[in-house]
Amino acid sequence: MELLLASAIALLTASGIYLILRARTFPVVLGLTLLSHAINLFLVSMGRLAVNRPPILSDDAAGYTDPLPQALVLTAIVIAFGMTALVVVLALRTYLETGSDHVDGDPPGNKP
């Protein structure tokens, strides 16, 4: 379980960083999305991994899972969703305005 989660976070982060360093806007947007997924998983794991444990007080519970990171992740997901929508619109607008999807807005003839 720990190995699976840790390698998932590592893979998502690595792919995210690789894509963010690309020169075209669409891969960068994808990279930001992957990075935010990695961080959501990371935040969940910071509340320690627990399976089948209740997050709220109950008399017959053997142990608890930490509910706070889950609330934090929920907030982070909402914010990341809004930001992704914004950056997609912005990337499209830049493409339409400059005629190129290069992050520096170079015209198509000007190969980077």
């Binding site: 963010i20 930001l32 950056v87 912005l90 607008r93 807005g105």
Partner: peptide, 14 residues
């Protein structure tokens, strides 16, 4: 402004 704005948005998302 769009070009500078795109950089600003992306670096702040990171």
């Amino acid at each position: 402004r769009l070009k500078a704005g795109l950089h600003y948005v992306m670096i702040n998302l990171v």
